[in-house]
Simulated assay, not measured.
Amino acid sequence: MNLTAEVLHYTAFTATPLGGNPAGVVLDARDFDEPRMLAIAAETGYSETAFLTALDTAQRRFTVRYFSPLAEVDFCGHATIATAVALAERIGPGELLFDTPAGEIRVEATADDRGAIRATLTSVPAHSRPATAAEVSATLAALHWDPSDLDPALPPHVAFGGNEHLVLAAGSRARLADLDYDFDALGTVMRAAGWTTVHLVWRESEDRFHARDPFPVGGVVEDPATGAAAAAFGGYLRTLGLVETATTLTIRQGEDMGRPSELTLGVGPEDARVRVSGQAVRIPAHAFRVAAVSD
């Protein structure tokens, strides 16, 4: 077992190092203080780096903190998946328990007959509320979108699945693909509202969606895969009454960035918790850097 203090590099929600959302993972950060973790996250340059600050390998329970290049965040889905896979490679597949600033997160890591590991996190209770007209107007202005660009069947909501995300549904795949927003203006709107990302989605079918997630508050232009937003989106669909039975949904993300990612959601009409699943694989150190504000 090698729970190291070095930064490990994984990419989540993909089976190949060329896809998914890279995350830094530090499996033993017991001696790290907050300034050091923030400095490491900034140097690593990924949208988030996860740090295990308390370890109980016998009980498979760990305290996890998440840092973007600019700030700590309460919860990060893709870094959770990456951390679970990194741990499973070292202590074996099975259930893991993560104590995070957002609450307790259970993760099940399983290995297929080829040894590929897939992790499924169960979110804190997810929910949403309608966004206000002022919230929508300010965000659309920063995105350079018009109200007519939105899908009226999927109204704007502020959704929560560990942290808050504004959900905006594009009326077409072309609108989603054409993302050229004002980084500073959107960051200002998001910081004032307390949102982690803006979750832009397009509905291809009842069980298949495409997404993009601007993340200027973390110093990152866009996330290639956003598990926390996916969990919140599951709660959003449940709030709208669009989940009548236990349903499995697919979110495709990162395609417009050249980092294709696939997130699988398990959502039920009675259970407020959302299950978010995906693979993660090791990548060469510093093989990929996101477009951070300092770049």
Results as ranks from 00 to 15, higher is better:
residue 175 R to I: 12
residue 38 L to F: 12
residue 27 L to E: 00
residue 118 R to M: 14
residue 107 V to A: 02
residue 247 T to S: 11
residue 28 D to W: 00
residue 244 E to M: 13
residue 274 V to R: 00
residue 232 A to T: 02
residue 160 F to R: 03
residue 180 D to S: 14
residue 237 L to R: 05
residue 56 D to H: 08
residue 253 Q to F: 06
residue 56 D to S: 14
residue 18 L to M: 09
residue 1 M to R: 12
residue 177 A to S: 15
residue 75 F to A: 05
residue 154 L to C: 12
residue 205 S to M: 15
residue 176 L to I: 07
residue 100 T to G: 03
residue 281 V to E: 05
residue 118 R to F: 14
residue 58 A to I: 06
residue 60 R to L: 01
residue 186 L to C: 03
residue 179 L to V: 11
residue 191 R to E: 10
residue 23 A to C: 12
residue 53 T to K: 01
residue 95 E to F: 11
residue 146 D to R: 09
residue 11 T to C: 02
residue 77 G to N: 02
residue 165 H to Y: 10
residue 116 A to Q: 14
residue 85 V to S: 03
residue 174 A to M: 14
residue 64 V to C: 15
residue 229 A to P: 01
residue 286 H to F: 15
residue 120 T to D: 13
residue 230 A to E: 05
residue 133 A to P: 04
residue 228 A to G: 09
residue 245 T to D: 08
residue 100 T to Y: 04
residue 94 G to W: 05
residue 21 N to D: 03
residue 259 R to T: 02
residue 294 S to Y: 15
residue 18 L to G: 10
residue 165 H to C: 11
residue 262 E to A: 12
residue 110 T to F: 04
residue 187 G to E: 04
residue 188 T to G: 11
residue 192 A to N: 09
residue 154 L to M: 15
residue 232 A to E: 02
residue 103 G to N: 06
residue 272 A to Y: 06
residue 167 V to T: 07
residue 159 A to T: 07
residue 251 I to D: 02
residue 1 M to G: 11
residue 96 L to Q: 00
residue 199 H to G: 06
residue 181 Y to A: 00
residue 221 V to F: 11
residue 115 G to K: 07
residue 295 D to L: 15
residue 263 L to Q: 09
residue 262 E to P: 06
residue 274 V to Q: 00
residue 279 Q to L: 09
residue 226 T to D: 04
residue 117 I to G: 07
residue 142 A to C: 03
residue 80 T to I: 01
residue 223 D to G: 01
residue 49 T to W: 07
residue 31 D to C: 08
residue 248 T to A: 12
residue 242 L to C: 11
residue 191 R to Q: 10
residue 172 S to D: 12
residue 262 E to C: 09
residue 186 L to M: 05
residue 288 F to V: 03
residue 15 A to N: 13
residue 32 F to G: 02
residue 149 D to C: 10
residue 140 L to V: 02
residue 260 P to I: 09
residue 186 L to D: 00
residue 219 G to P: 04
residue 141 A to P: 07
residue 188 T to M: 13
residue 20 G to F: 01
residue 67 F to S: 05
residue 272 A to V: 10
residue 95 E to G: 10
residue 283 I to H: 00
residue 92 G to D: 01
